[in-house]
Design a protein around this nucleic acid. Structure first.
Length: 271
DNA sequence: AATGGGACCTGCGCGC
DNA sequence: TGCGCGCAGGTCCCAT
């Protein structure tokens, strides 16, 4: 789903495609995704405002505007940003909000499950989500990462997905990073040796960077800004491979549930 | 403090 | 072929 690599891919594409363009109109097909302010105010305050800068924090996208406000976009599970809209004037079924830009083209926010969240706010730094967000893997040292795990008894995989602990990692990359580091997802975080912790830290950063290079993983709804799928799926080792052969040992990939999330691993390779 | 489960939603794939 | 059901996961919220 959209995790750090997918959101970063979109961020980089938005940088090239829409910065310094102006929003000349907003069409709302489903107001549920607009969390603040109310729809009418949201639409009115976005009119004739230019997009100055794109920022990504964890899985959150932030568009800083010439009005001084910011538009934040969380894709949650099935959100997409598409630009320019393909096929002319009519949006697709899942298009919840459309932004008409000064070049006459549409930036569409699509979200089949309507979990996504748009906010137009004065200061994104004051958002609760932002204030509570943990550091990104790239902002940490191996020493700091070790320290963070030291007194945590939580299962390592659940901890990696906790955005307040570390930001950007979701279910897919938590599974993949743990496979690469050969660590059982059920292990308590503080049971990892220094060596295992360092290896895990390296593999987290590697898998995220690899995925960014391949423009993310299109397993469900995620696509790039252009609508093209991301290509990292072909490099997945465990995610969504229950019962299939482990590429390393030929054993069977197992699926269990941790905190209600599908967890895939190789019981032979991961200890 | 840590953990689990439900809620938010829709679409898909499965079994019958 | 059609239908109902379970499931997918990011985040929040509540209960234990």
């Amino acid at each position: 789903m959209p995790e750090l690599p997918e959101v970063e891919t979109i961020k980089q594409e938005l940088d090239k495609a829409i910065v310094n363009k102006k929003i000349i109109g907003v069409v709302v097909n489903n107001a549920k995704v607009i969390k603040e302010p109310k729809k009418e105010k949201f639409v009115a305050e976005l009119k004739n405002v230019a997009i100055k800068k794109i920022i990504r924090k964890g899985k959150l996208l932030i568009l800083e505007l010439s009005s001084g406000k910011s538009l934040t976009i969380h894709l949650k599970m099935t959100g997409q940003l598409i630009y320019p809209r393909q096929g002319g004037a009519s949006p697709v079924k899942a298009t919840r909000v459309s932004f008409k830009l000064s070049d006459g083209k549409f930036l569409d926010f699509n979200d089949s499950r309507v979990f996504g969240e748009l906010r137009l706010i004065d200061d994104w730094r004051k958002l609760k989500f932002i204030q509570e967000l943990g550091p990104e893997p790239f902002d940490l040292s191996p020493e700091k990462f070790r320290q963070m795990l030291k007194d945590k008894k939580t299962k390592i995989k659940v901890l990696l997905m906790d955005q307040k602990f570390i930001s950007g990692i979701g279910n897919l990359y938590a599974n993949e990073a743990l496979f690469r580091a050969r660590i059982d997802p059920r292990r308590p975080a503080n049971s990892l040796s220094d060596k295992e912790t360092d290896l895990l830290f390296r593999e987290i950063k590697k898998v995220l960077l690899d995925a960014i290079q391949h423009k993310g993983s299109s397993v469900d709804q995620y696509v790039q800004l252009s609508g093209k799928p991301g290509e990292y799926v072909k490099y997945h080792k465990v995610y969504d491979r229950e019962g299939k052969e482990c590429f390393k040992c030929k054993g069977k990939i197992k699926r269990i549930s941790l905190s209600g999330r599908g967890t895939y691993f190789c019981p032979i390779c991961q200890r």
